[in-house]
Write a protein that binds this DNA or RNA. Structure first.
Length: 108
DNA sequence: CGGCTGACTCTGG
DNA sequence: TCCAGAGCCAGCC
């Protein structure tokens, strides 16, 4: 399997990986970073942060990407986090009392 | 072309 | 559980 097209920008490749996350499952920034290869977890976070600005991110299930602690990172003005949790619960993801997800169970 | 920005991870206390 | 510091790198003015 050839590596992803170098023509595509890094962001595009990250979105590609995120799009592969099935409904009802979540993955972490670090995990996506390793799949894409050669980038740090931060790059994934930045790529998702730019999603609203990029037409290529229209169909990217960004809500399925959380941090390594199984938590939803505080982003946006604080509202995006709530939305993300709602979306995940709608897909069957369960949060514990502390708002964490069991990656052992729901991790991709 | 220089500088700023950012939704992370890991380790240690 | 919370907090701080260091490493990380592409994209956008």
């Amino acid at each position: 399997m050839l590596p992803q097209d170098p023509e595509r920008s890094l962001y595009q490749r990250i979105y590609d990986v995120v799009r592969h996350v099935p409904s009802g499952r979540v993955t972490t920034y670090g995990r996506v970073a390793r799949i894409v290869g050669g980038i740090s977890a931060q790059m994934v976070g930045f790529a998702l942060a730019a999603l609203p600005n990029r037409p290529d991110g229209a169909d990217v299930p960004w809500q399925r990407v959380i941090n390594a602690q199984g938590r939803v990172s505080p982003h946006g003005y604080g509202f995006g986090t709530v939305i993300q949790k709602e979306l995940l619960e709608g897909e069957g993801i369960v949060f514990d009392a502390e708002g964490r997800v069991d990656l052992e169970q729901f991790g991709w």
